[in-house]
């Protein structure tokens, strides 16, 4: 990998507070704290994943790092440049793709969209012509580039987004939930592509709430919860964080609320998740010493029919659930 050892993305105590006002006559100001002091240090060439539930602050971080939003306090640097004062220099060297179908001109062709942004990125015409051709090829849009975007499938729109984000051959690429709404095949193709870009030296900053995605491709992961980073490391080290933990799952019929509460109160239990199925409830318990818990379940759930008890190793998803739940 090129340039190892230099930071591509650095954030130091990044905070963001949104102030909203509401009410017609009595204007009420309300502060919403989106980020509460986020630190990041991402090396060049790394593929970094940011995981977190909806509303945790993932998009706010991405917008600050892509110069679209100013932090309330704290410092962020992209390739050593300050996101507040050196936005113009940063914009030339980064690319960003936000998930979903918005952000394209639907009534124009895919090619028109790309040409437009190529000019906005001030890419010389001969270079942009060649690069657009290559991107259409790589992203499997060849042959459809003259069609209007409104006729594209979701996957095609997402690939077009990615093509747009790659027009200026960015040194750092930001992807905010890029696989949202894609079918499994589309999602896998996109992940493969992102991995390839990363192998070619592009630094990738990816947000997602698909665990498999993060586990499969990311070099390093951070988990964000309510505006704070609660864990950071390689996928396996995050799993190790939940290592003395385990998961007990079983099915049961009509478990009353006070028994669930009693389960929650047990000292070894971290969380209890109840999923209602048609005829039964599926109970997932994150706990330490799962073997012991499984053995003692019989007495705890006295007189009730317990089926399909299983004890398993934590997955990244389990580690994540543990981190973001209370």
């Amino acid at each position: 990998m090129r340039f190892m050892g230099t930071s591509a993305i650095q954030a130091d105590q990044l905070r963001k507070t949104y102030t909203t006002t509401r009410g017609l006559i009595r204007r009420e100001r309300k502060d919403h704290i989106a980020l509460r002091g986020v630190d990041l240090d991402i090396q060049r060439g790394e593929l970094f994943g940011l995981l977190g539930p909806n509303g945790a602050g993932k998009t706010t971080i991405v917008k600050i790092l892509t110069t679209l939003l100013l932090p309330t306090s704290g410092v962020a640097r992209i390739l050593g440049l300050d996101v507040v004062n050196q936005a113009w220099a940063i914009r030339k060297r980064i690319g960003f793709v936000f998930g979903g179908e918005r952000g394209l001109y639907w009534r124009l062709s895919g090619l028109d969209n790309l040409r437009y942004f190529a000019d906005l990125y001030r890419i010389p015409p001969d270079v942009s012509r060649r690069r657009i051709g290559e991107l259409l090829e790589t992203l499997d849009l060849k042959g459809r580039e003259h069609d209007k975007v409104e006729g594209y499938s979701r996957g095609m729109k997402q690939r077009l987004h990615l093509a747009r984000g790659l027009l200026n051959q960015p040194e750092v690429l930001f992807l905010d939930e890029p696989t949202i709404g894609l079918d499994p095949v589309g999602g896998r193709e996109l992940r493969g592509l992102v991995r390839r870009l990363s192998n070619e030296g592009t630094t990738v900053f990816l947000t997602t709430h698909y665990m498999l995605e993060a586990d499969e491709i990311c070099d390093r992961i951070a988990v964000i919860k309510k505006g704070e980073i609660v864990a950071q490391g390689t996928p396996s080290s995050i799993k190790t964080g939940a290592e003395d933990q385990g998961v007990v799952e079983f099915e049961i019929e009509g478990l009353p609320a006070q028994r669930i509460e009693a389960l929650r109160q047990l000292p070894a239990v971290a969380t209890v998740i109840v999923e209602e199925r048609e005829l039964a409830q599926v109970i997932t318990i994150h706990c330490s010493r799962p073997g012991e818990l499984a053995a003692s379940l019989g007495s705890l759930l006295d007189g009730m029919q317990v089926r399909n008890v299983s004890v398993r190793e934590p997955t990244l998803e389990d580690a994540y659930v543990l981190l973001v739940s209370n």
Binding site: L68, K92, L104, F117, L120
Partner: peptide
């Protein structure tokens, strides 16, 4: 509405040119 305002603001081309 189309979600492109952010993208043109995030470009290294000033808004006035566009």
């Amino acid at each position: 509405w189309s979600g492109t305002l952010e993208q043109i603001m995030g470009c290294p081309t000033p808004l006035v040119v566009i």
